[in-house]
Design a protein around this nucleic acid. Sequence first.
DNA 1: AAATTTTTCTTAAATTCTGAAAAAAGACTT
DNA 2: AAGTCTTTTTTCAGAATTTAAGAAAAATTT
Lengths: 403, 403
Amino acid sequence: MSTKYKRGSFQLMKSMNRSTILNMIREEGPISRADIAKKTKLTPPTVSNIVKELISTQFVIETTQGMSKGGRKPTLLEINADQFYTIGVDVGTTQMKFVITNLFGKLKSHTTLTIPPFPSHEDILSIMKKGIRELMDGADLNKFLGIGVGMHGIVDPEEGRSLFAPAFQLHDIPIRDVLENEFNMIVKVENDARAMTLGEYWFGNGNDADNMLGVNVGNGIGAGLMVKGRLFHGEHNLAGEIGHITIDLSGPKCNCGNYGCLQTLAAGPAIAERAKKELKAGRPSLIHELVDGDYDKVDGQKVYEAATQQDPFSIELLHQTGRYLGIGLTNLIHTINPKRMIIGGGVSGAGEFLMRGIEETIQSRGLTDKAKETSIVLSKLGEHASAIGACVLVLEEFFIRQE
Amino acid sequence: MSTKYKRGSFQLMKSMNRSTILNMIREEGPISRADIAKKTKLTPPTVSNIVKELISTQFVIETTQGMSKGGRKPTLLEINADQFYTIGVDVGTTQMKFVITNLFGKLKSHTTLTIPPFPSHEDILSIMKKGIRELMDGADLNKFLGIGVGMHGIVDPEEGRSLFAPAFQLHDIPIRDVLENEFNMIVKVENDARAMTLGEYWFGNGNDADNMLGVNVGNGIGAGLMVKGRLFHGEHNLAGEIGHITIDLSGPKCNCGNYGCLQTLAAGPAIAERAKKELKAGRPSLIHELVDGDYDKVDGQKVYEAATQQDPFSIELLHQTGRYLGIGLTNLIHTINPKRMIIGGGVSGAGEFLMRGIEETIQSRGLTDKAKETSIVLSKLGEHASAIGACVLVLEEFFIRQE
DNA sequence: AAATTTTTCTTAAATTCTGAAAAAAGACTT
DNA sequence: AAGTCTTTTTTCAGAATTTAAGAAAAATTT
């Protein structure tokens, strides 16, 4: 049994307290030293000493004075939010999104570049460099703490590599090494669904759900698992590959070779496929007009658009999709039992339409009342969730004690 | 976000080191102080001081001297395995098993009592007390560290209660309070699948798999999740209720009301059901003889027996069951991605026959080579796995730093 | 018998938290 | 307006514990 043999030391003690205080300021600030001492059960001198250090690193500043409660006014402490920025990249199947956020995850600027079909390793890396350079242009380099990359497919976060990107059919892209070399700052790489989850946990709808799960529904379906406030990767970084869990043995064939994978029933292409079939069979729908009779143009996006315009067929189709997704999510409730699940990714625009089916299914299939109580919410960060989450990868380095 | 605000203190530092050293002795002993210092990166005096304390608590003893490597012979340290005992209880659907183990999880004695049909709260608790009293009879009370209980159904380990035991249709049995009151020692209560998993992790086939999963296949199917060496419960202690994950939307109806739950395809009753159907249809099999034509007597057990005697029908039936189970396990690989899965519970006797189907399915359905590498092994602790795991619940209190 | 290696113990130094109390700043009372 | 009380923050001595360095002890090798 490899209960990693952790050693207690002065350094550990200090870094735990540093991290605790810094995060308390981040999450509950503005807050006074005295309040921190009360809440952490650290003594006032300890808090004062560490705060002094934090102020000297410029992560924390003293702001306004607070209201007195009958004595000396407290000096309030706050994260120096705009002193440092982080860069986040979200590598999708056709687009690469770039964002700059401050220490509170607030979007400062963003841009998007297009990925050509059948890109090479070099294509991906040079688009990445280009986008980052563009975004950083003119700014003070010292302001940037690092770069985070959220990438679809299988990623090795420890080595900072994309091991396999299905949409590009590329293996083993050494993202971290290349970017670190180019920009000379910390670079973190993570799977996009996990990045999204992390983003929602820190700055989105994940708040106060220590055990939660982000579900990224787009061309495929991926999830990020949050266990005790940290991302969970599994043994080979495959945790959360829920697009390929089997929910219907006699379901449609998946590109992975099996039948009835969740994503053959609930991902974007599955929606488009079902829509096409019905449309060709003459089913009346607004989609006919949207694509002008060219069924090849039907995709998830078109269905959402039609649904937004109250097209009954599209609404029903998304409802049905929500029910399928709900079955997958119910399986997750019975496996992981998270406090909350956050639905994001390409479909999150159509989230409301999916939601009803999801909720219905969980209510009908959940094993117990507690299972049915699992809160399901839509992404708050929307289309930038993965990129903002990628920024959090960098923030974690500075805010969370690394063990 | 509730990143629990942990405070670093001298006590914490000390207790971390204490726990580290104690566990190193447990897992790697006999071992010398010098070796512990090397491996933990603690300094020799720190190790010596803590070891002195551990010896004074009688958990550790100096044993033989080791081989010298060219200098003074090392004094080897070992867990004082038989200085203390723990009591483990496994509450099944028809039987309650009781074991006494030493600090190495070694079985010292055991007994089994029968649970009557439709038991009341009081029945369960009094059988429990009776079995424990019987087993402790005559022994020195100071030898016992505590009592652990593994109970099927939904359990609240924090409150030490069985929230719902489906086999008895009982709610809210206050096991811990009653036993603590009766025996005046630490009492821990946990779900049986989780207890089994913990047992295998400490003393069975879980060794060195920090992220692993124990699967208990009996009348139902339950799993225990091990994350970073500790049991994972989920938000409402429902994590691992994998008997009710849907794998076949058009599968058989489950007693939970849904269709195609894993346990309608792969648990004991499902095996019996399929066997009966085929037998009644005239399928030749050794089972006919085993039950003497009375199909009501057919259960999982009979099928295993027949398989053991090379009955082709039973072997094929278990093979098929293994394939179903494999689908469930593949879903878990793609969700949790554990390093290892351990199959135990009522069916573990028939494990070999299931294994082939499980392996086949994982090989054919695993998403990547890494997924296919997941090691699947049978329980080492067999029928006592849950009860021994229940003992570990108590050992954790003494060996693992509680935070 | 001397040199070397390994284990263990001793002592002093370093790090960090803790507790008591003082200082600072403001609010309330008379 | 002065004095007293509260609250916040800092200061400083003391305590807990690890760390570093060296010495003693014991066994093996030369």
